[in-house]
Amino acid sequence: MFPAPFGYVRAESLDEALAVLAREGPGAKILAGGQSLLPMMKLRIAEPALLVDIHRLPALTGWQETAEGLTLGAVVRHSQLERAEALQEFYPLLGRTARWIADPLVRNRGTVAGSLAHADPAGDWGAALLALGASVTLRSLTRTRELPLDAFLVDIFTTALEPDEVLTAIRIPKPAGRPFGTYLKLERKVGDFAVVGVAVNVVLDARHTVVEAGIGLAGVGPRALRAPAAEAALIGHPLESGGIREAAALAAEAADPVSDRRGSRAYKRNVVRVFVERGLKALADESRPEVGVTA
């Protein structure tokens, strides 16, 4: 568990980081929180020639909330979202996802954008941010592009990120009504990677009708997945048991897990169904605490 030799540069500006990437090519790797990259280097699974450290760049820290939505800088840490009470009103899913990630030490250092760029299929943020309809901003020395997260995530540990690009920001659209969101994670122990992770997010109008719905799945495909049919089934209806069960069944169909040491394909798919159902029921209860929903 000792990394191969590597170089290190701490970028003083984003432009400097981009210039180094342009110059060095694929051997250079961006270092932000280092919570995935460094373990992979210690296992010599990753052997980058040069680390370009961006974790202190002021331009990438913090977030901005506008009428259009929320923009997270590339080095926002998991723990910042875990504690961001100001974001709870419009983006409750963020805090409820962050608290499931690893342990406090990892959450204090690891970044949301780094997790997306790492693209571990069991990562929690892919599922949560898909459920929120997020997009990402990618910058190189010569261009800036914005991609829906669904297009950014390609395959196992593979994204649309080019070697000369940095993921600089994550954009989440502002909900068109009152949002409710939660994250459910089947883990063998606290701090584990998800066997199955399910993010559910619904936006209700004043009459408790679902106007937006997002369901993201972790650990059940080559990348984080959306469940579009399940989402569509929820929209236009109140959140109630019949629709919830239908959405859960559709989400399970959207899952495409593989059998491995954490469970079989059938088992994981079943957990998706159970968790989508439980998650949506919890949101229904939360949205109408005085009435509740009977299953």
Binding site: D103, K189, V190, D192, R261
Partner: peptide, 9 residues
């Protein structure tokens, strides 16, 4: 791949 318990377990 070999989960160990912590105080939370």
């Amino acid at each position: 791949d070999y989960p160990l318990p912590t105080t939370t377990e």
